[in-house]
Design a protein around this nucleic acid. Structure first.
Lengths: 149, 149
DNA sequence: GCCGAGGTTTACGTTAACGTAAAGTGCTTG
DNA sequence: CAAGCACTTTACGTTAACGTAAACCTCGGC
């Protein structure tokens, strides 16, 4: 499965290299995640991304890519960019954070966690609803006999 | 718990009654679900609710209440009112729906189901992320010794 | 040297989902 | 009967999250 067709040009050592940290253009990321470049620039403007610049051009590294991925995941779950930023920024400010900040971060995390749990419950309930609706729909469909339409 | 203070004026039979189908005012529902009346009227305007009228005043029955509940649940999961209406309206149009409509409903349901499953996965992943961030935060916190701040 | 593909900034436009304010109706309560 | 409360309609305002358009740079290839 994970066996690529490349002839392993230089198999000297595949161990924990200094992480060649690939870089991406804005267009690449846009295609990769099926969003527009406008969206990516907007996220930057909202403080969710901070790519380097080569001249005027944005250069995204692996970490930026992950951040974008997490942001989009948050969006799919219905979080606002502000909520997402809250966590992302705290996370980045962590290493040199003081106690107050760290405790605040833990609070926020607990909050999000609660949020996610309620969402899980909501999903469960909605799945049951859908099951029910589908069952009824199939019943009605069956009761229509096999001719009409 | 469910023991009201009313002296049970007529306890002739508590079995499956013809469902006394309680009714609600817009204000009651608003408090019940912690939304504004504006929101409820807006949902009606968007075709998600259709309460009776006593004169000019809206009268909501049990079914309306459930619909509101489902709508708000959908919102918590990040669905748009349009998406929610899609299902709700189809559901109501079901009994006299023709085959094409029913099949369309089944399609929509399958779609929603897929959506929910992806959300479940997103939640799982995000929970892992949060676990990770929390772990790190606690580590940093511990490494700060027990004095500063 | 020019041209197209991709990048950039600036700025106005749009949509969803309500908020908010104004002005009116209807009941019941002191 | 006036006051107050809960309801109503109408209509303009607001916010988030982008879309869209214009006008510009820059670089590799023919």
């Amino acid at each position: 499965m994970t066996h690529s067709s490349s002839p392993a040009p230089d198999a000297s050592q595949d161990g924990p290299l200094p992480r060649q940290t690939r870089s991406y253009s804005i267009g690449e990321l846009a295609k990769m995640f099926e969003v527009t470049t406008r969206t990516i620039r907007f996220y930057e403007q909202e403080g969710l991304l901070a790519p380097e610049r080569r001249g005027q051009t944005r250069i995204y590294n692996e970490k930026d890519r992950v951040r974008l991925k997490l942001t989009l995941r948050g969006k799919r779950l219905g979080f606002s960019l502000a909520e997402i930023r809250e966590v992302v920024m705290m996370y980045d400010a962590m290493p040199d954070g003081n106690r107050r900040q760290l405790r605040r971060l833990l609070e926020i995390l607990a909050d999000k966690r609660g949020n996610l749990e309620r969402q899980q419950e909501d999903i469960r309930l909605m799945q049951l609803e859908i099951d029910d609706v589908e069952r009824r729909a199939r019943d009605v469909l069956a009761s229509l006999g096999d001719q009409p339409d």
